[in-house]
Every structure is written in structure tokens, then in C-alpha cells.
């Protein structure tokens, strides 16, 4: 495959300037693909499925975009795959979020945002702590009291590896209430879906998730949100108080976006950029965003790339501070 793509690209690089076709005339051919680096049901999976459905409904992408689930190592498997095997693939986008920044910051993959092409952030999401509806923790205050009495008495579950983003919610929370972050018990699962199932089954007590992952169960009243980790309440679930309101100063906003494989020609990259810029303004996307409880915060192209690269540097400092990185 690599050979034919390379030839194809070489051909395009030559034909491009000679035929003097404007860059915007580039159109993807055939099927598109969005890699979700986690199992179905988690945040990355939702990020992929949302854009796939919006782009096809608005007709922005002529073919179809199918979603490939590639779980493992909190995004490390997918970024390694994309950086090495999918070079120059113009039809591929990969969903990403802060969770990938953690994977990068922890050095769990030899690849960073510099080896791939960060594309855009299409929304932001609030993280939070969730418990079964019949849990003994009625409010965040109950949880704080229990944590202060014995940090090991509470078991958290989340969809990322230790040191990843769901674990970070727990660690930052512990730090904010004066509990040693490394003492908090955190059980990693493959994606938010599994973490939620384990919490519903009572095998773990509190799930550290993103709101979109919990939305279905929240609406049904099966689980309760103890707190969202933000300065302002969620626009979709305004009943859940913020952690700050309840005396724990934690903010943790999750961006949701995409990167592309390295070596993608500029025309293709720009096409995706413009397509996403248009897509996030469409009523179809607004409907999806409301459904998922995302907040409308976006970043594109270079601004986004700078943002994620800075973020990786900041997280490295934070992880050292918390004792997760030597």
C-alpha cells in the first residue's frame, strides 16, 4: 500500500502545480476513516462517530467515513500505527483528547504531537465523578470526608491507564482536598464504557468519566453526578454542582479533536480544516453537541497544534509534581 500511495502522492505533487488547480479543489476520494483509539462507547469512539455522522449528513464528505476501533495503551497503539503505517493517508483522521496528551507527556509512546499533524478541536467536555443512584455518597462532601478519613476506602474506575486523564481527575481532586494523590485507588479499564459498567456493578465505587460517557445512564437516573470538574456547570446537566462549589478546587476541561497522519499533503489537510470549520457551525453538529453535552470551544490548525504541544509540556510538569513521573 505504501508504495502505491507514495506514487499517488508524487503524482499529485507534480500534477498539482502544473495543472494550477486551486488547493480548495482537492476532494477526498473513496471512503474516509476515523480511528477511535479505544473500545466502542468511550469518548474517543463518540468523537469519531459524531464527526462521521455530521460530515455525511451535511454532505461535506461525499463517500462514507467508517470508524475503526483501535484500543490500547491510552492512544499509544493508535498513534504508533498512524505515525508508521499510515503516512500520507489523506482520508484518515484520528480522534484525540487530553488523554492522548497524557500518554505523550508520560513518554508512553515514542511519538508526540510533532510526529503527527494536529488538525482541530471541535468541542470541549466537562469531566466529573459519578456514582450509582443508590450509592452511600450523596454529595461530593461525603466523598471528601471518606477520602480524608482513609484514601484507600474509595475505589475509582476510569477509562484511561494510570497517569492518564481519568486518573488525573482523581489525582487532582485528591491533591485539592489535601490527600496524597498517589494514595488514591484508581482502577484502569479499556474505555469509559467498561469503567461505567464496573461502577454500576458495584465492583468500583466512583467512576471518573466525561459527561458524554455518562449521559445515557444519567438521563435514565441510574447514576448520579457528584460533581463536574469545571468553573461553571454543564449546559446539558445543570443539576450537577461543580466541584468548586463543594469546596474542592479542581477544573479539568477535556478538549475533543483530531489529528492526521504525518506526510499528508497541504491540500488535503486544508480541505479537512475547512470542512471541520464549516461542520462545527452546522445545525446538525449543534444537535449532536447538545445531545452529548459538549461545550462549544474550538481551535483549528496551527493554533490547535501550538495548544496541544504546550499542553504536553505543562502536563509533564504537573505529572512530576503529582509524583507520577520521575
Amino acid at each position: 500500500m505504501t508504495r502505491s500511495v507514495v506514487l499517488l502522492l508524487a503524482g499529485m505533487a507534480l500534477a498539482g502545480p502544473m495543472a494550477a488547480v486551486p488547493a480548495s479543489a482537492w476532494e477526498p476520494k473513496g471512503q474516509g476513516e476515523c480511528i477511535a483509539p479505544a473500545n466502542p462507547g468511550g469518548g474517543w469512539d463518540i468523537t469519531c462517530r459524531t464527526i462521521s455522522s455530521v460530515l455525511q449528513k451535511t454532505g461535506a464528505f461525499k463517500g462514507s467515513i467508517y470508524v475503526t476501533n483501535m484500543p490500547g495503551g491510552s492512544g499509544a497503539v493508535a498513534i504508533a500505527n498512524v505515525a508508521t503505517k499510515r503516512k500520507g493517508d489523506t482520508n484518515l483522521i484520528v480522534s484525540a483528547s487530553n488523554a492522548l496528551t497524557f500518554t505523550v507527556a508520560l513518554g508512553r509512546t515514542p511519538y508526540t504531537f510533532k510526529e503527527v499533524m494536529p488538525l482541530a478541536q471541535i468541542g470541549a467536555e466537562l469531566g466529573g465523578f459519578f456514582v450509582p443512584a443508590d450509592s452511600k455518597y450523596k454529595t461530593l462532601a461525603d466523598l471528601i470526608a471518606a477520602m480524608k478519613a482513609d484514601p484507600k476506602s474509595v475505589t475509582f474506575s476510569g477509562g484511561s491507564a494510570p497517569g492518564g486523564q481519568d486518573h488525573m481527575k482523581v489525582a487532582l481532586f485528591a491533591k485539592s482536598i489535601g490527600v496524597e494523590p498517589t494514595k488514591a485507588v484508581y482502577v484502569p479499564f479499556q474505555g469509559g464504557g467498561e469503567a461505567l459498567t464496573s461502577m454500576l456493578g458495584g465492583h468500583t465505587q466512583v467512576a471518573a468519566l466525561d459527561i458524554s460517557e455518562a449521559a445515557g445512564q444519567l438521563e435514565a437516573g441510574k447514576i448520579r453526578g457528584l460533581a463536574v470538574l469545571a468553573d461553571a456547570r454543564s449546559s446539558k446537566f445543570p443539576d450537577i454542582p461543580t466541584a468548586t462549589e463543594q469546596g474542592a478546587k479542581v477544573t479539568y476541561v477535556i478538549w475533543r479533536g483530531y489529528y492526521m497522519a504525518p506526510g499528508v499533503p497541504k491540500e488535503a489537510y486544508d480541505w479537512w480544516l475547512e470542512t471541520l470549520k464549516t461542520a462545527v457551525k452546522s445545525p446538525e453538529f449543534a444537535a449532536e453537541r447538545d445531545k452529548l453535552g459538549w461545550e462549544p470551544i474550538t481551535r483549528f490548525g496551527d493554533e490547535f497544534a501550538t495548544y496541544v504541544n504546550n499542553e504536553a509540556a505543562e502536563y509533564r510538569v504537573l505529572l512530576k509534581e503529582l509524583g507520577f513521573l520521575k
Binding site: S74, A76, V77, T84, T103, R108, G164, Q190
Partner: peptide
């Protein structure tokens, strides 16, 4: 890549084995 910790195991540095 280890599914729990993200550590690469027995890959001998070969990305195709990750």
C-alpha cells in the same frame, strides 16, 4: 503495548509489533 500501563513489551522496538 500493555493494555493497563501502556508499556511496550516484547516488541524489540518494532512498531509493527506494538
Amino acid at each position: 503495548i500493555d493494555l493497563v500501563s501502556g508499556a511496550a513489551r516484547f516488541t524489540f522496538g518494532n512498531p509493527f509489533l506494538q
